[in-house]
């Protein structure tokens, strides 16, 4: 048999088999997204009435009704500004602490490191109840601050700190020492030398932090109760009419609206994004 298919032919055949296999495997990864967008254009009756992926009639109105049904634009903005704030604050806080842990010698540094590592193992669910009472004490129930503070200082922020620390450790020390010779303060070295050198790590932290915050579900579910303060994931699960009956067509239109922009950004910057993830895992 091998004789008839030379090694080169064999390679081509195996390549083709691989590609077919991968294509089949890819179906559950992409099909839901296609189905989601197509159903977003259908009427409620058609979504379950016909399995066709092409809508019988394109109901653009769904995408308008999404915004009149609940304050969806506001909810979209909430998610966006919360995720951006979490990302920005995490970058500053994590890179400061990460730098200190990587570069500065101080009594207690190993203790701090040890404590932080232990926090990595603890799911948010463990501390969510006391954090609820903490936020109550601060008067922050039904506000967005818990959704910003908890991810920044919770396990996720600590992951970010360690990512930054690992990256700083790998940077060559000499540049920073040169900076010190030139009279830069420690803060100056961090800001003018270490930060610009660690753009890849910052990008990685930014991307995983943004997605983490964008995806948050449990925290908004507990801390936020008014409709105009909802974030996207909550809003998506809330396409029911005033009596609790689901509005599938609007829900799927809204889901498409929430997913597509992120997906487009991802497709444009996919190489960098995927590399950031690679970086974040290996170093972490």
């Amino acid at each position: 048999m091998i004789g008839r298919f030379g090694p080169k032919r064999l390679r081509i055949v195996s390549r083709v088999c691989w590609t077919i296999g991968l294509s089949v495997a890819a179906i559950p990864f992409v099909f839901p997204l296609l189905w989601m967008v197509s159903s977003g254009f259908k009427s409620a009756a058609e979504i379950f009435g016909s399995p066709s992926i092409v809508p019988r009639e394109w109901r653009w109105l769904n995408f308008v009704e999404v915004f009149t049904y609940q304050p969806f634009a506001q909810q979209y903005f909430n998610s966006l500004y919360i995720s951006v704030s979490v990302t920005a604050i995490t970058l500053v806080v994590a890179s400061l602490a990460g730098y200190a842990l990587a570069r500065l010698r101080f009594a207690g540094s190993s203790l701090v490191g040890l404590f932080l590592v232990s926090a990595l193992m603890v799911p948010e669910e463990v501390t969510i109840i006391p954090n609820f009472f903490l936020m109550k004490r601060f008067g922050l129930i039904d506000s967005h601050l818990p959704l910003i503070l908890l991810p920044v200082f919770g396990p996720h922020g600590i992951v970010a700190t360690f990512l930054m620390r690992q990256y700083f450790l790998a940077l060559p020390k000499e540049v920073e020492e040169a900076g010190r010779m030139d009279g830069l303060s420690t803060f100056g070295i961090w800001w003018r030398i270490a930060i610009p050198l660690s753009r890849p790590a910052l990008a990685a932290v930014a991307i995983i932090t943004f997605l983490h915050s964008w995806n948050q579900f449990l925290e908004p579910l507990i801390f936020v109760s008014s409709l105009d303060k909802f974030t996207l994931p909550l809003a998506l699960s809330n396409f029911t009419d005033p009596y609790g009956a689901p509005l599938w067509h609007l829900q799927l239109a809204a889901t498409s609206l929430s997913v597509i922009p992120i997906l487009v950004v991802y497709l444009i910057a996919q190489r960098q994004i995927i590399e950031s993830f690679a970086l974040s895992g290996v170093k972490g």
Partner: peptide
């Protein structure tokens, strides 16, 4: 294969 990672979990579960 990576696309679902950047899709929001809520959207994914709903679909």
């Amino acid at each position: 294969f990576f696309a679902p990672v950047v899709t929001s979990a809520a959207a994914w579960a709903i679909v």
